[in-house]
Design a protein around this nucleic acid. Structure first.
Lengths: 251, 251
DNA sequence: TTCGGTATGTTCGTATGACGAACAAATGAT
DNA sequence: ATCATTTGTTCGTCATACGAACATACCGAA
């Protein structure tokens, strides 16, 4: 038992994350089963979360309430780009007439932290908080390309590198070549590696000391925009947007 | 000490929520000050959250990490409208060429749970998780109008009812009249009560038994669209979108 | 530069906060 | 109706989380 680890907090967060698309409502026993806790422990946490307003119950089934969003919002609103990225992103999406997003790396996934949808391409519902594997996304490639070697080794040691389409690059060797290219070019163009038809272009977002902290991208349909057109027409807008966000952010 | 209340979970969630726009990074002592906990307690929770991946530290200052979004995402992804609202919202925003949102009531606030920005009207950054007072928003009025009398009394007992502009309605009597009107008409049109220039129209989203669980709205600039135009051109689209979401959701 | 007061971070003995074994209640099949 | 199983709850107790006291860092005045 590590003396600086509060087991009850970890358990309570596990209970929140027991809920999800396949489990919108749960009983005490179901929460216990999904978290590996005893029924008595699960009950205590559910009653606590209910009293705090994060969970509601009809006496038998429990479900999360909107107040849980306050936790994620604490993160979002504390970020240096929070006040400045959204208007810039909206302007870019309006200019390009395509969906634009900002994401960060967390573990082996990218996590979307801002998004302006324009035209629907993907079958999955992308929104703030959505996670996708870094290796198959332009956003992920941009961030991976900026990692130090030790961090990149950690990434490869952990990442599953799922195949999504016939084009998905999954081998470490190939991904390292792709990342080196991104580092040299300053952008990543990923073509139908995550989903057939989806073509996306990303550039880095840097903090005041020049460190890559996030990425910004634009997505289009392969039938609509050629790769050359993306580089010619989209890349300058994306770079200008990234530069503007960085300037706004570091003001 | 209530035997079913896990104090450590409550404290841990307080520590997460100590962070925010004015407090992007905090030391142990600062967290202790903002939460009312002792430094030793604050330290333990920060170290726990760091080990869980929700917080990072340079050894002195702590800050939240994107993994915190997983908590809010558990809520979002467990909602019946999650898979179906976004595409419908995107279609409505494209048709109307205005920003569209979905929000729920939590306490005395509305909380945004989906949003498709189109053209920038408001000065504040609206996004998933953003809270606004229910009384001054079309989204809030729609949901308040559907509350049972006891719940509405609770709302009035708790709500601050801030004045935002010269037009903001704040008295209980006037708000009750406005809500009765909403209940009768089936929509709420709020005109420059939250912010000068902002005009918005909302309709309810209902679950399978007809209960209002959320609201969907469209916002425009008062200089761009008259109230009559909103009712004539926007209301049918909004109603169709709400109906479609309800159908999709209850399938 | 040194010193002293204050602020901040950390440790470890212990008590109380959270635990789970056992009991109570609910459910479903025969 | 009875019985076996599942689910929810209680309360004695111990191990988990606590905070008083110690250690370290910082800052201002002389």
């Amino acid at each position: 038992m590590r003396s600086e680890f509060v087991q009850s907090l970890a358990r309570g967060l596990d209970v929140i994350q027991a809920f999800g698309p396949d489990r919108p409502e749960l009983t005490i026993s179901e929460v216990a089963k999904h978290t590996g806790l005893t029924r008595a422990v699960a009950r205590r946490f559910l009653l606590t979360l209910t009293e705090l307003g994060h969970v509601e119950t009809d006496g038998r089934r429990f479900r999360l309430r909107p107040k849980v969003l306050d936790l994620g919002y604490a993160y979002l609103s504390s970020q240096p780009w929070w006040q400045v990225a959204q208007p810039r992103l909206e302007a870019a999406a309006a200019t390009l007439r395509e969906s634009c997003s900002v994401a960060m790396l967390d573990g082996t996934d990218i996590v979307y932290v801002a998004r302006v949808p324009a035209t629907r391409i993907m079958t999955i519902n992308l929104n703030i908080g959505t996670r996708l594997p870094a290796h198959a996304t332009s956003l992920g490639r941009v961030i991976l390309a900026a990692l130090e070697e030790s961090a990149l080794c950690d990434y490869f040691a952990m990442a599953d590198r799922t195949v999504f389409t016939k084009r998905t690059i999954t081998s470490e060797a190939e991904l390292r070549v792709a990342c080196a290219q991104v580092a040299e070019q300053g952008y990543s163009l990923v073509d139908q590696e995550l989903e057939n038809g989806l073509r996306s272009l990303a550039v880095p977002l840097r903090n005041r000391v020049g460190k890559v902290i996030a990425a910004i991208n634009v997505g289009t349909h392969a039938a609509r925009t050629t790769k050359a057109e993306m580089l010619q027409q989209f890349l300058p807008v994306l770079r200008n947007t990234a530069d503007a966000i960085c300037r706004d952010m570091n003001r």
